[in-house]
Simulated scan of single mutants.
Amino acid sequence: MSHPTVKPPSGTRRGRPALAVALAVAVLGGMALAAPASAGTVRKNGSDDAVQSSLDKVVRGGELPGALASVRDADGRVRDYTAGVGDLKTKAEVPVDGQVRIASNTKMFTAVVALQLAGEGKIKLDAPVEKYLPKLIRGKGNDGREITTRQLLQHTSGLHSYTAGMPSIFKIQHRYTEPHVLLDTGLAHKPDFAPGKGWAYSNTGYVALGLLIQKVTGRPIGEEITERIIKPAGLRGTYWPGIGEEGIRGPHPSGYAAKKPGKQAAESLADVTRLDPSWGWAAGQLIGTPSDLNLFLAALMDGKLLKPAQLKQMKDTMKAPGFPAGWTYGLGLLKIKLSCGGYAYGHGGDIDGYETRTGITEDGRAATIAVTALPTTQAAADKVNKALDTALCS
């Protein structure tokens, strides 16, 4: 669900750090008026401002079909934007604040649940994972007795990411995969490094976290995320897809993937909106809206989801090789250096059909941008990061 630079044109998914690539979209900008998201929130359609201009640039090259964004100010006022087209076949507009697969943004939700359990005294971040998942992490030099929950959260466990070398989406689009199969796929490889001796983005680590949460709570990870985060934070457009659920429930733009390696023109794109997201699981299965991601970040930073001690640890970051200069990684949370000075906290996610980038500043300004395909050129990727930076700095 992410890569340090640009997704390889082969169609395989490497282990891509979730905010290092950029966004994109095709031609034609469009906006529409949406109803208020919640009491005290004013939502209005985007105007010809810096954010709209940045989205228009993202789609102008035609590499990606559509884009949508939501920007929330410190007082909770919301402005939404769209650009490009929502469906290449019908030429339908991009739905304002439509639902998309948020992919590795799911990691923030999984991390919050784990940190809540730590705050409740049910797990210890620096205890061996073996304590909660006895004899599960074994083989090829992987050993749960040497790995801690904190290392899983911060990608310092050394567990090889199961997404490295995955087959084309067209081979697994409708295949359901059990979480233990995902874990075993990662454990079939030697560790990337000894626990705590390096940093490498690992979807395998977050699958292990999901299994750990289920073992400790006795409930499914999707239910824990729903009851502990989605409902309390009032995220009305965010949900955990059920087993075998391939569609997207609410208004949404179509998502696309290149049919041939290295081809990203509109005529080479195939609709992959319907797919089985089980291969993402606790590392990337959620569906949500841009405004919901902003609302989640606001609730998180306002201390509504975590106790102060756990939020402080989540925001404690370290160098993350492969990310842009000045970007560091905490416990399921990325710290992003802004061109206007200061930093934002957020994440991002890549899954075939959709890419999202999100962040919130210390003073409460939040932005999320989504596009409906994965950029395959550095230029498109840079435009996406620029669009997020513009939304947070404007």
Rank of each mutant, 00 (worst) to 15 (best):
T226C: 11
L297M: 15
K260M: 11
I229T: 07
L117W: 01
D48G: 10
L269I: 10
G218H: 10
A208D: 05
K44R: 15
A208V: 09
A26C: 04
I229V: 13
G218A: 13
E93V: 11
T273I: 04
G288Q: 05
I369E: 06
V207R: 00
W281S: 04
D276T: 08
L28C: 07
M314Y: 03
G210Y: 00
T5E: 07
A266R: 03
T390I: 13
R150D: 05
K386G: 15
V100Y: 00
A35I: 04
A194P: 08
Q378C: 07
F109H: 02
G247T: 14
L159E: 04
F170N: 11
L211F: 03
V272T: 04
Q285R: 08
T361M: 09
F170M: 14
R249A: 14
A67N: 08
K197F: 08
L212W: 07
Q310D: 13
R357N: 13
G196D: 10
I172P: 02
G234Y: 09
K307M: 14
A380I: 06
G86Y: 00
G364L: 09
Q378W: 09
V96R: 03
T328E: 10
L115S: 03
T361Y: 08
L133E: 01
L64G: 12
I248G: 00
N203E: 09
Q173R: 12
G303H: 06
A373C: 09
I172F: 07
N385R: 15
K91P: 01
N45M: 15
V371E: 01
A118T: 01
K7S: 12
G330Q: 02
Y329T: 00
V25W: 08
V384C: 06
R249K: 15
S339L: 09
M318S: 13
I351F: 08
N294H: 05
W281H: 06
A266D: 11
G165E: 06
G29K: 05
K337M: 14
P134S: 08
H174R: 12
W281V: 01
M301W: 06
A282V: 07
T149V: 15
P232N: 12
G237P: 06
T82F: 01
W240L: 10
T148I: 11
S168W: 10
